[in-house]
Design a protein around this nucleic acid. Sequence first.
DNA 1: GGATGCATATTGTCCGGACAAATCGCCTGG
DNA 2: CCAGGCGATTTGTCCGGACAATATGCATCC
Lengths: 252, 252
Amino acid sequence: MTPSAPSASLDFALDRTSPVPLYYQLAQQLESAIEHGALAPGSLLGNEIELAGRLGLSRPTVRQAIQSLVDKGLLVRRRGVGTQVVHSQVKRPLELSSLYDDLEAAGQSPATRVLRNEVQPASAEVAAALGLAEGSDVAVLERLRFTHGEPMAFLCNYLPAGLVHLDTAKLEATGLYRMMRAAGITLHSARQSIGARCATVEEAERLDETEGAALLTMQRTAYDSTGRVVEYGTHIYRASRYAFEFQLLVRS
Amino acid sequence: MTPSAPSASLDFALDRTSPVPLYYQLAQQLESAIEHGALAPGSLLGNEIELAGRLGLSRPTVRQAIQSLVDKGLLVRRRGVGTQVVHSQVKRPLELSSLYDDLEAAGQSPATRVLRNEVQPASAEVAAALGLAEGSDVAVLERLRFTHGEPMAFLCNYLPAGLVHLDTAKLEATGLYRMMRAAGITLHSARQSIGARCATVEEAERLDETEGAALLTMQRTAYDSTGRVVEYGTHIYRASRYAFEFQLLVRS
DNA sequence: GGATGCATATTGTCCGGACAAATCGCCTGG
DNA sequence: CCAGGCGATTTGTCCGGACAATATGCATCC
């Protein structure tokens, strides 16, 4: 339980000619040192003043680097004691997850079949969710996502028309969020609701389940950095093959 | 679409004799001004230098206040443009949620019945989840949560023995997280998994559902600020009466 | 031997300034 | 009328310093 002695001099290489900020360079190298095990969980980081002097940086810059890792949950600072590496079993950041990216990261080699990709007038529900007038043009997207050749989820998404060019071939080769990012849309936040229900006959057929099987449902409204709604979606997952996993940070 | 003119002088009252930090005082007053509508969505905040001068603060202090609201997703800064209020329909930046607090905030007047509250040796699964040796003493807690007189969830929790004194009467009057906080435990992060399945006969009976009804399942491992595991729980919700709602922030 | 108080170490807060980088609007020139 | 350049505005980064608040360990005193 006694916190380890301040980890001695790790060699951090800072490049002052680089356009990437110094605090960010330091934060990244600290993070990789933690991830890599060079900074053991529970070990103290050494005081900021001395660290700043050793690196040739000012204390505010060092603090900014440390603070960013504290925000990520990798470090804990305690006044009068020091900054130590949190010994957490888990690393996963969680944030706004993209199903496609999640599956790919898990080595599941996802595949997508686009069932529908067209523009049509918004229904009342969709218009309300997207913050548009009823009857406005919206892109409607229905997809089936597979892993290992088996269907795993049915995805239905609505986007304001003209926001992104939704090429069907591209949609089957990558994920929607990746396409939005490529179109210059930076996602900022999303409101989600996760529930469950039993499969209807049509749903069961579409997902290769039996009627009454448990399904996970997710509704998401995504916002870009200005607060505009850029996507509304209703997703249905086979509970037998999928669960949402994520880590939450409590902001004090 | 044109961003509103810089909102003129709002009167912020800063108390230098207060122990609460100046940047925090400013952040809170800004937040309440946004929540209250005094700062309209999309409106510019006015440049930092001038704002600092007007408030008698230094620019770093003002920046620290603004940054905390940016992290919360209430403001957006753009270099060369300014800082503006995000016009988001939703405000709640939900985080690690306490079911009890959630229900109470929604005016659902939750009630709890403690079915089991004892200390016993940890099974292999529980020991692994809590990071203890198999057979260590752990507190086992089984509760039923009601709203409007109807059962809504079955909660099973495990805690390292001796961490909190689990008084049954107190547990029925308040929530577990509130008791942990009162015992000096500051939650820091949690890993969650949300899935679904169909109710077994016993589960259906316990929750006043029919066999095969859809249930939402949640498993959570909670960590305190030093990274210690302080709680592991398996919760089961009636999907017909409950869904998880939360907002995610993307950290760029 | 135990409790109290003090010195020390470390982070938290705050200040003032300097320059860089990005964005936007305006003006000029073609 | 359009394109490009230029300057003004605003946030981003970084520095150096000062003092306050808190936790820890040690010495002292009862």
